[in-house]
Simulated assay, not measured.
Amino acid sequence: MNVLIVYAHPERRSLNGAINDFTVERLRANGHHVQVSDLYAMNWKAPLDAHDVRDRNADAPFHASLDSKRAFENGLQSRDIEIEQDKLRWADALILQFPLWWFSMPAIMKGWVERVYAYGFGYGVGEHSETHWGDRYGEGLMTGKRAMIVVTTGGWESHYSPRGINGPIDDILFHIQHGMLFYPGFDVLQPFVLYETHRMDEARLHATYDALGQRLDGLWDDAPIAFRKQNHGDYAIPQLTLRDELAAGKTGFAAHID
């Protein structure tokens, strides 16, 4: 299988760098083909702007979605965007690895999503009608592929528990797992979260490798998160609200998991 790792940490000699090296070695030892998009090493351009479109009319106002659509349809995207899209087409699985900074991914990785998920590639796909509202949330160009987050944080696991001060980790990662991975069609696996990164010794590092290795070994076998698919009857269309008889009494993120 082909695995793309999108990695965001500014220091290769960090814990994240060691985890990334281990991930690549484990996947290759299992016979998989691996590519790594090391965003800091690539000096990845994070902002989505008019420079992402080749041969555009500089006198016309920049429109993020419409310019993205035109560029994608006409082969006018910036070359760095096209290269990353080709990697996603090649990949059977995507791993996003990053430290949790201010309750989300680093800005450089958010910029990767914003620029690579072009109109017609990551969104704006499929028909919009009274019964089908685009190919998204369980459908899309990434259908049949798998995805997983590998994330580190200095906070304690209890800080991210259901009653923890930071909020539940599943809620914090929902916008990434549901909004950036499930949206274009990935089957999303449970995240691998490493807490209290400042308390890492040799024994704990090896235990981390063992736990992560098991997750990597199960990349194609573990059950994905049971997010509800948009166009399969759970949602009223075009309102896109969950049907009243489903998840009775639940609201918020948890209601969108079957």
Rank of each mutant, 00 (worst) to 15 (best):
G17Q: 05
R89C: 03
H206V: 13
K145W: 07
D21Y: 10
A64H: 13
I165T: 15
H63Y: 12
A29Q: 14
N20L: 09
F227H: 11
S65H: 02
W156K: 13
P47T: 02
G17N: 05
V113M: 10
A8S: 12
G138F: 02
Y123L: 00
D221V: 11
E84W: 12
W156T: 13
D55H: 14
A46V: 05
Q77G: 14
Y119N: 03
Q214R: 10
G124L: 00
I83L: 09
A107G: 14
A18W: 07
Y235R: 04
L4S: 11
L66T: 01
F103R: 03
A50E: 06
I108K: 06
A118E: 01
L96D: 00
D135A: 01
T197S: 09
V6D: 08
G252S: 06
K250Y: 15
G154A: 01
G249W: 10
S104L: 02
E11T: 09
E130M: 11
E127A: 04
R13M: 11
D135K: 00
T143K: 14
R13S: 13
D21C: 11
T143A: 15
T241A: 05
I108Y: 14
L194D: 15
G144A: 05
R243I: 08
D49S: 08
F22C: 02
L242S: 08
A248I: 15
E11M: 09
I169R: 03
L141H: 10
L189H: 13
T208V: 13
D59F: 04
E84F: 09
I5Q: 03
Q85R: 06
H198L: 14
D221M: 08
E73L: 05
Y195I: 06
I5F: 04
D187P: 05
L205S: 15
L216E: 06
A50N: 00
S68Q: 01
A147K: 03
R215Q: 10
P162G: 06
F192H: 07
P10I: 04
A248C: 15
G164L: 04
S158H: 10
D86M: 07
L246F: 09
